[in-house]
Structure formats: structure tokens, C-alpha cells
């Protein structure tokens, strides 16, 4: 077995780690307008990424949007996840597959769908105007709200599926016991279901947060040119400015911030609930 696992493991490590190491190396190079970059070992790119108010603002926007999306996704996913987890009918497996269905279509295509939904002559505006609620079309597209709305829509299935599998593992009798001992649904949720599903909430929230921190297509297509998040900014450095060293440094800054925030978040939330 070990003979088979080892080469496969090394291959995976190489495929995953190789590009990362290469990017890490690039991030210490110096940009050159003619030859792309010059070999060097400098922290200048990082220093600039951290100190520049322009990129500080982009990073802050990214974190705020990711936090908002994570919170909103958790709130929205809990109900459907619970419903799915506790469902007993033969529809359960079909609905689970249906939940996964949006994942079969890439984020770009789904973002394009939201584009059609939210534009001034899109479905939402057409419906609101048709219903006589508004006279002039609302500017829905190219707003932070549009980005958050669409991102939540895109990451929701991940959250629902993660939560559902954890809720499924909580015996129904535990909830019945709470009700039997006099807990109304609300209290039962906060005292029993919520703490017990916390691992699922944390796993789902971490996954969603990482996805949101790295969102590319949605902010680009729905945020408009003035709305800046990190992943498009990284791409811009690579594809438009040809500044690979700085792009790599931005990418690693995003990675580091994401890792710090996710580990910080999980430990804080976990501790708070253990204490309660």
C-alpha cells in the first residue's frame, strides 16, 4: 500500500505545492516593464501591498464583503439545511442532488445569470415595474449589494450541504428530549441544536469565507469597475499590469489574511460556545 500511496502523495504535493512555491519565489522578485521581472530577494512588494492605502481599502472591502456573505449565508442556509437533514421522504436524496445542482455550473455562468437578473432592464426591475411598484428602474447592478447578493447565492449550496450533514448526525431524540423537558423551539435551537451543529457551522462558514475572500467573477461582473476586491486585483496585476512579483505578493497577502481570519474566527466562536 505504502508503495502506491507515496508516489501519488508526492505527485499531489508537487501539483499543489509546486505552483505555490513558484509564486512565493516570484513575490520576492522585482518588476521590470520590459522583461517582466528581475531576480531579486526583496520584501518590497509585500511592504507596498501592506502599506498602500489603495490596497488596504481593497483588502478591507474584501474582508467586509466576505464577512457579510458568510453571516448572511449561515443565516439563510440553516433553515433549508435543517429541513433537508430531518426530511424522511423519498424526496430527500433528490433534493440533496438538486441542492448540488448549481455547483455543476461555474461561478462565472451563475454571475452572468445574476447580471441578467439585476440589470436595469433585467428580470427584477421588469417585475417591479410591471407590478407598478417603481416607475424608474433601480440601479441594482454595480453595487456592493449586488455582489453580496450574488455571492451568497453562489456559496449557499456549500453551506446548506455542510450544515445538513452535521445536523443529520445530531440524533432527533436529543431535540425531542429538549422539547420534552420544556424547551420551546427557540430555546431548543439556541441551547441544543446550535451548539451541537457548531462544528458544521464552523466548517461551512470557513469554507464559505474562503470562497468569498477569493471571489473573482462575481465582484468583477456585478460590482462594476469601481468596486474592488482582492482576487480581481491580483488578476489585474498578472494579466493587465504584467507585474507578476507584485501580483504574487498580493496573492500571498490574501492567503495569509484568509488563514489568520479563519483560524481566529473558529477558535473564538468555539471558545465562546464551550464556555456557554
Amino acid at each position: 500500500m505504502a508503495k502506491l500511496v507515496l508516489p501519488a502523495g508526492l505527485l499531489v504535493l508537487l501539483l499543489l505545492g509546486g505552483p505555490m512555491l513558484l509564486m512565493l519565489r516570484y513575490s520576492f522578485n522585482v518588476f521590470d516593464p520590459l522583461f517582466l521581472m528581475k531576480q531579486a530577494f526583496t520584501f518590497e512588494n509585500y511592504a507596498r501591498a501592506v502599506a498602500d492605502p489603495y490596497y488596504q481599502k481593497i483588502l478591507t472591502t474584501t474582508i467586509l464583503v466576505a464577512l457579510a456573505c458568510t453571516a448572511l449565508t449561515t443565516l439563510l442556509a440553516y433553515g433549508p439545511a435543517y429541513w433537508l437533514a430531518r426530511m424522511e421522504s423519498r424526496w430527500k436524496s433528490k433534493l440533496t442532488i438538486l441542492t448540488m445542482f448549481p455547483l455543476l455550473v461555474g461561478g462565472v455562468v451563475r454571475s452572468a445569470g445574476y447580471l441578467a437578473l439585476l440589470s436595469t432592464d433585467g428580470l427584477v426591475n421588469a417585475a417591479l415595474r410591471g407590478a407598478g411598484i417603481i416607475a424608474e428602474p433601480l440601479q441594482l447592478l454595480y453595487t456592493p449589494g449586488a455582489v453580496i447578493f450574488a455571492t451568497v447565492g453562489i456559496v449557499l449550496p456549500y453551506m446548506i450541504l455542510t450544515l445538513a450533514s452535521v445536523i443529520e448526525s445530531i440524533p432527533r431524540q436529543v431535540e425531542e428530549a429538549a422539547a420534552n423537558l420544556g424547551a420551546r423551539p427557540g430555546r431548543s435551537f439556541f441551547r441544543v441544536l446550535m451548539p451541537l451543529s457548531l462544528p458544521g457551522v464552523l466548517a461551512g462558514a470557513t469554507l464559505v469565507f474562503i470562497l468569498c475572500m477569493n471571489a473573482y467573477a462575481t465582484p468583477l461582473l456585478l460590482g462594476g469597475p469601481q468596486f474592488q476586491m482582492m482576487a480581481p486585483a491580483v488578476y489585474e496585476q498578472f494579466a493587465r499590469a504584467s507585474n507578476w512579483p507584485f501580483g504574487a505578493a498580493l496573492a500571498f497577502l490574501l492567503l495569509i489574511v484568509t488563514v489568520i481570519l479563519t483560524s481566529l474566527g473558529s477558535s473564538v466562536i468555539a471558545r465562546r460556545y464551550r464556555a456557554g
Binding site: 516593464p33 469601481q226 493587465r240 499590469a241
Partner: peptide
């Protein structure tokens, strides 16, 4: 243009998107 394209993009972004 070649020498300054990256700087131009940077200035463009900062002013209009910052």
C-alpha cells in the same frame, strides 16, 4: 508607454477606483 504602462494602470486605478 512601454516603460510606464504599469505605472499608468496603477495611477488610473488609484484615481478612478480608489
Amino acid at each position: 508607454i512601454m516603460e510606464n504602462q504599469a505605472a499608468m494602470l496603477d495611477a488610473w486605478n488609484r484615481i478612478l477606483k480608489g
